[in-house]
Simulated assay, not measured.
Amino acid sequence: MTAPLDAPESAQHAEPEAIARGRRDTESRSLTQIAWRRLRQDRVALGGGAFVALLILVAVFAPLLTAWFGHPPNQFHQDLIDPATQGVLKDPDDPWSGIDPTGGMSAEHLLGLEPVNGRDLFSRIVYGARISLLVAFLSTLLCVVIGTVLGIVAGYLGGWVDTVISRAMDIFLAFPLLLFAIALAGVIPDDAFGLSDNALRIAVLVFIIGFFSWPYIGRIVRGQTLSLREREFVEAARSMGAGTGYILFREILPNLVAPILVYATLLIPTNILFEAALSFLGVGVNPPTPTWGGMLSESLAYYTVAPHFVIIPGLAIFVTVLAFNLFGDGLRDAFDPRSSD
């Protein structure tokens, strides 16, 4: 009769020990370690992150890739184009062979050729990734810096400083950004601030996107700062005589890294789409420099004879934005304190 009573008693002793051991294991890991463990379990987010890393490598090594697998992005191959339909010939040696439905895809031209000029699509897609990622990363960095500084100052100081910054956020959020970008980009001079041509246009695009998008992250940082400024570690630093700058950037800011990183990851695909939209409207980077949005704009007149010319740059934008969004969602779930470990 004693054995059945002993088993539940041992289980009752074992269960609290297991709970305590699990609690100690969780407490011994930092937030970054916990987030990384959660992220490794999310296969979809890891897939998105792997594609993003691959895309960055492709953009960095674009000249090497085009030398191996393609041609210079602005090299014409008009001998492969049908002069009547402007499509890619099935057989360049036979002008009556008709239009190639694959757009000239082969071992020499992996993604085919553009109509009219016959430029290599693989090379232009690879170089277009450089422009999209450069504008997106730089504008996101500018947005994060401005939004973080103003958001943390507004949330911590409060009072009239918070009122002024918050009203500025409302004004910027109500600003017609797309119309302003079209108007400003359309009147850019040839030379200004020591820059010229596309370097100047890229700098202006980065300024427009980053400077007018900071309120989105500024609101998030302000809200987090409002709760963090009442925490014990801030009160302890204040009681020890720490200055405002030290508290803001040495005590509060490290606790904002996770939400800032997550939101920045989700903001990058938005900026990629914005740059593509401006290039599509003809106010982005000047041709012949390849951009995904510019390629889409050029392809609309030839979708009947070269459907691949529409599909490939559109698919590049779609897959890139999707990968960033999946990776950003995974980061958000990994850093969420309410998520189960």
Rank of each mutant, 00 (worst) to 15 (best):
T32Y: 05
W36T: 11
R338W: 01
P176E: 09
F61W: 13
D100Q: 07
R38Y: 02
R222P: 07
F274P: 00
L134F: 02
D162H: 06
I165A: 10
P337A: 08
G218R: 07
R124H: 03
L228Q: 12
S166C: 12
R201H: 09
L121A: 03
L178F: 13
A62Y: 03
N255K: 10
A203L: 14
P313A: 06
V257E: 02
V234S: 11
L110A: 06
T32E: 02
A45V: 11
S30K: 07
V283M: 04
I152E: 08
A67N: 12
Q41I: 00
E15N: 02
G210L: 05
D162L: 09
G103L: 09
V161D: 12
W96V: 02
A20C: 00
A301W: 01
P288K: 03
G314K: 13
F211N: 06
T304H: 08
P288G: 01
G87V: 01
P259K: 14
E235L: 15
G210W: 07
D25F: 10
A3D: 07
S30Q: 08
W160N: 13
Y263H: 15
M240S: 12
R338G: 07
P92Y: 03
I260E: 07
L253T: 00
F249D: 04
R29H: 13
Q12V: 01
R130K: 08
W96P: 00
D333A: 06
G293M: 15
A50L: 11
I220K: 12
N325G: 00
L256D: 04
R24T: 03
L228V: 13
V60A: 15
G155Q: 04
T26Q: 10
M105L: 06
P63V: 09
A192D: 07
T270A: 05
D190L: 14
A11G: 09
D79I: 00
L273R: 06
V153C: 15
V204D: 06
A276S: 14
A154P: 04
H77P: 05
